[in-house]
Design a protein around this nucleic acid. Structure first.
Lengths: 183, 183
DNA sequence: TGGGTCATGTAACCTGTTACATGATTAG
DNA sequence: CTAATCATGTAACAGGTTACATGACCCA
């Protein structure tokens, strides 16, 4: 559901190809929404079919041809409606495979659990670095913006990511302590 | 992918019907993994087909008949392998629709954003209450356990939930402050 | 000469969601 | 009398994942 709005939102900044959108997605929205390239192309097609987007093919001789997408008025309205509409069910539907593992770790014991949590801690480091560079890379994909007030909202989401990473780290360390006492 | 392991994990505590599993799932794993009843029944069927489970039909005269599922040796091995295997990619693949909205809120302005974040805060309260009762309801579904060491692992996951809720609340309050200054 | 980027996808599959159906019993 | 609980699902659809294909250009 949200992939659609992500694409509408990005195209609202200006026309782009599927390829551009793929990169923009990965550079800016990726930490809270992941999408495969193939899914993006499929979705763009479907959205054009429903009149949310229009596209034109640019013939290139040096490079493969490309397809430039534009948001239509109907697309703009759809985006706006989604942004404004009161019911936001989401934000708390976590799907966390790590927690599922921990939940059933009684089958294995603390030593295994420690390994799993430590592996998680390592991946957290990489995540942390990503988060701290996200606002910049988002900005590079929206150079055409007239005013930069958008950046304040991006900062709010990046902030969430930072806090999340911190929280995970604190949880991991606390859990490791508990688990070591169980050895 | 994880639904499968959730079902294996629960059945490892003892035989259950699809209906029991549905309730157990909703009472214990729901905060980090949501599953529809229809999905559970479908998955159970598929898993039996692959030899991870076996089932027998219990004829009842007072109530509708039911189907009791048991984990097989192959199922136990599959579960164990998943628990122990080193590569845990998950735990950081957030999918958060709320953040997607905030990201694009530049289209609407701070007043709308405030409404969205405040609605989120309200739902957080309910989530918080859920989290604090989860360990107990999980325990009620595993009374047949010989030793209760499992509960320590459940506590670790519940802990994550509590920290997550706290973090969200702090983020929401901080964001509201920022947004109010933008008015 | 090999690997990366540009640019587009298709096909098959798996997972998740929504809506609906049945029909008896039991508790408020 | 009504709503919930017990217990099973099916069907249709939407969304996500994995693997693969093409072919030219550019840089080390």
């Amino acid at each position: 559901m949200s992939l659609k709005y992500g694409l509408l939102g990005l195209l609202n900044y200006g026309e782009m190809t599927g390829y551009d959108l793929d990169k923009a997605f990965k550079a800016s929205l990726n930490f809270f929404w992941q999408a495969q390239s193939s899914q993006i192309y499929r979705e763009l097609n479907a959205m054009e079919g429903r009149g949310l987007l229009s596209s034109k093919t640019i013939i290139q001789s040096d490079k493969p041809n490309k397809r430039l997408y534009n948001i239509t008025d109907s697309g703009k309205e759809t985006l706006r409606k989604w942004l404004v509409q009161g019911e936001c069910i989401a934000g708390l539907n976590i799907r966390n495979e790590l927690l599922m593992r921990i939940f059933f770790m009684g089958n294995c014991g603390p030593a295994e659990a420690i390994r799993v949590v430590e592996a998680f801690k390592e991946r957290l480091t990489a995540f942390n670095e990503d988060i701290h560079t996200t606002p910049d890379s988002a900005a590079s994909y929206a150079e055409r913006l007239i005013d930069k007030k958008e950046a304040e909202y991006w900062a709010l989401t990046a902030n969430f990511g930072k806090r999340y990473a911190e929280m995970c780290l604190a949880w991991a360390e606390d859990s490791l302590k508990t688990l070591r006492e169980m050895l």
